[in-house]
Design a protein around this nucleic acid. Structure first.
Length: 726
DNA sequence: TCGACCGATTTTTTT
DNA sequence: AATCGGTCGA
């Protein structure tokens, strides 16, 4: 029996990996090798302790983490398909629920609603309850519902004081409609599994008996329902192993309860606690900075993270005048790092909110550095994809109100809001599903002849798909849907400049369906499940040749040799929205700690003095309080302006770079450059072109240049645009 | 019922 | 900037 995988572990890691039976809590500081410990522990259980892989359950937060874990376990054990269940809480719960649909209160092929679906349904509910949508915002009500679900409360569990009566009323109506829709949202996936377990103890026992070892990653981010679920399964054998770090708890807004990890050893008698405090990731300047920031939080678990990686690059901070300039600085530093030999894939730019990606993206585009943005608008969240999938959902479950209202009049078929409302009313008064409601509305002559004909035609079309949904390969079915619904025609014809993108996305959806069929298929419901739970994020880290841009939340669990954190400003980081909440700023500070500890060798921070909000108006900003918490890092220190002239130097001499195509071109000093329409310029890659648009002055000016038939946009300071001497 | 137009309004993070 | 909802004329 080979135990080579125990080599190279430090004593604490070894103790955690080779812990036998009984509850185990591993408090793993950032970069202390916790993923290594988890995977090695699974390998050790199987190989050394003779545990059947099928009796291991490992729960993670992201699909990516789950995949990485399975992959690493496979590598260690040298086998594939070990039979362990490794997945996110949500996907594991969905798997369980699908196996016991007969015991659930929802239909067989229930749908999984994502945030967008939830929002649409919430709007419908607000409308049906005759609430003033201005006073009671669907999104806010929904947030209240999600929070309730995270803590395990159904609508009946909520006492009216302290909870607002409207919220409870909304929650009740929302759940009713979800049930009619045969749909579960993310919160339901967890809560319904817990309910399934308590209503049918034999089902729970089945899983409890099977899973002798339960491991949970990122335990500090579990909510109450997740904790109860894990305990219900694990308490049979008592082998619950949790890994977490209270300093990295950043999902409080999603119902994560820090108390889960803080009180673990009280809930589980004879818990073995192991602390992993040696950081293998970051140099000491980085670790020191991160530790200093987090030390400003109160009520932390005592811990002292240390590293033996002495020395290393100091942290850099840059104050920019504008967001464009901030982006330019980042790109200039990336260039510098590239010259030092770093690959683009070793660099990440992190930010608090997606909106901050834009200026950085633009600067990267213009300098030709490859990059990938994670998160943001995901593939399956794109409008055309959601539309197409709504048709597919109707084929599976025609009562789905969100899917129905989404596409019943898309493209327009003469079925307006009035008709849709009538259908809802009929379904309601006859206590039937929407589909029968529509049928009844026609039969009872409630609709105008025109509307009745339109609705009838639509229903016939959907019934046609419905008849073959089981027997037709998915890609063929979707193709048929796109044609018969005339949705593709609609996209083709709408004259929007984005329509070719949309068509491409639809083609990509078809190839995803085809790939799904090739992998073994499993029907439309399984395809839709996957779509609901899998995000683009799962590809993060697959790209080695591009700079990665993402939010700090997405970056959790990842590491990069070089990390930039942009937008270090009050109101952004800490975010405005977090400031009036209890403990909000502390969570932001933990987020800052997470961000800083992603870096192995280089950490670069930046902020801008002026930032545009909502496109139009600019706001003055002040540096983040987290910066002033760093000693020797007062915002005025370490100002770096890559375009600054050395003191006393003359303005950059205009550099004549050559003579061709009838003129001399020179590369202007970015500070001095000014571009205007009609000017002839030369770009190293695209050649000679004509300026068709120029916005702004100095290095942050935006210039549009036409090269023959193609137009390109540049930022003056980045693009090496030479100007024709006249 | 449709589409054009206008004004108001943007919760930050994710399964 | 971009999107969403409401209004109004055809």
């Amino acid at each position: 029996m080979s135990e080579a995988f125990l080599e190279g572990l430090n004593p604490e890691q070894l103790r955690a990996v080779t812990h036998g039976d009984g509850p185990l809590m591993i408090l793993a500081g950032a970069g202390s090798g916790k993923t290594r410990v988890l995977t090695h522990r699974i390998a050790w259980l199987v190989q050394h302790a003779g545990v059947d892989p099928r009796s291991i359950l490992a729960l993670t937060f992201t699909n990516k983490a789950a995949r990485e874990m399975s992959h690493r376990v496979e590598t260690l054990l040298g086998t594939t398909a070990t039979g362990s269940w490794i997945g996110t809480f949500h996907s594991i719960c969905l798997r369980i629920l699908r196996r016991h649909t007969d015991l659930l209160g929802v239909g067989r092929d229930f749908a999984v609603y994502d945030v967008d679906d939830q929002r649409r349904l919430a709007k419908r509910v607000v409308k049906e309850l005759n609430l003033d949508a201005k006073k009671f915002k669907p999104a806010a009500l929904l947030a209240g519902v999600s929070r309730a679900k995270d803590t395990g409360q159904g609508p009946d569990d909520m006492e009216v004081p302290p909870y607002p009566a409207t919220l409870v009323k909304f929650y009740t109506a929302y759940q009713k409609m979800m049930k009619e829709a045969s749909a579960l949202d993310f919160g339901d996936l967890l809560l319904e599994t817990l309910k399934l377990f308590s209503r049918h103890p034999c089902v729970a026992d089945h899983y409890a008996n099977r899973f002798k070892y339960v491991l949970i990653d990122e335990y500090q981010d579990t909510n109450r329902v997740q904790m109860l679920l894990a305990e219900r399964i694990a308490d049979r054998w008592g082998n619950l192993c949790v890994v977490g770090d209270d300093d990295q708890s950043i999902y409080g807004w999603r119902g994560a309860d820090l108390d889960n990890i803080l009180s673990f050893s009280q809930r589980h008698k004879e818990t073995t606690t192991i602390k992993l405090e040696q950081n293998y990731r970051s140099t000491s300047p980085i670790l020191d900075a991160a530790s200093t920031i987090i030390s400003n939080n109160k009520g932390r678990h005592a811990k002292k993270l240390w590293t033996d990686r002495e020395g290393g690059e100091p942290i850099r901070l840059h104050e920019a005048a504008t967001e464009e300039e901030e982006a330019l600085w980042i790109v200039a530093m990336i260039d510098q790092l590239a010259q030092q030999g770093y690959q683009p894939g070793e660099i990440a730019v992190l930010y608090r909110t997606h909106a901050l990606s834009r200026p950085v993206e633009e600067a990267l585009i213009f300098s030709g550095i490859p990059y990938v943005v994670y998160g943001g608008l995901r593939f399956y969240e794109r409008r055309e994809i959601k539309d197409a999938l709504a048709y597919l959902r109707l084929a599976v479950h025609p009562d789905d109100p969100v899917a129905l209202t989404r596409v019943i009049n898309l493209p327009t078929r003469g079925i307006g809001a009035r008709t849709v409302d009538l259908i809802f009313k009929h379904a309601d008064s006859h206590e039937t599903g929407l589909w029968d409601g529509a049928r009844l509305a026609i039969e009872e002559g409630a609709l105008t002849a025109r509307a009745a004909k339109a609705v009838g035609g639509f229903m016939e079309m959907v019934e046609g798909w419905r008849a073959t949904v089981e027997s037709t390969p998915l890609d063929q079915l979707i193709e048929r849907i796109l044609v018969e619904s005339k949705y593709r025609d609609h996209i083709e014809k709408d004259g929007d400049e984005r329509s070719s993108d949309r068509l491409e996305n639809l083609a990509e959806l078809l190839s995803a369906a085809e790939a799904f069929e090739k992998e073994g298929g499993g029907g439309a419901t399984r395809f839709l499940d996957r779509v609901a739970l899998v995000s683009d994020m799962d590809r993060a880290g697959d790209t080695f040749s591009a700079v990665t841009l993402m939010t700090i939340h997405s970056a959790k669990g990842l590491e990069y040799p070089c990390v930039f954190i942009s937008g270090m400003e009050e109101g952004i980081f800490p975010h405005q929205m977090s400031m009036d909440e209890e403990g909000g700023v502390e969570e932001e500070r933990r987020l800052c700690y997470v961000a800083a500890t992603r870096a192995k060798e280089h950490l670069h921070l930046s902020y801008s003095r002026i930032r545009r909000v909502y496109g139009n108006q600019s706001e003055y900003r002040i540096p983040s309080r987290f910066l002033s918490e760093l000693p020797g890092m007062a915002p005025s220190v370490a100002k770096i302006n890559p375009y600054a002239r050395p003191p006393g130097a003359e303005p950059q001499v205009q550099q004549v770079t050559g003579e061709e195509e009838g003129g001399n071109y020179y590369l202007p000093d970015p500070e001095e450059a000014s571009y205007s329409t009609g000017m002839k310029v030369r770009h190293p890659r695209y050649g000679i072109g004509v300026v068709t648009q120029a916005q702004g002055l100095g290095p942050s000016a935006k210039v549009t240049v036409e090269f023959g038939s193609t137009a390109k946009k540049f930022i003056a300071g980045m693009a090496k645009l030479e100007i024709l001497v006249t």
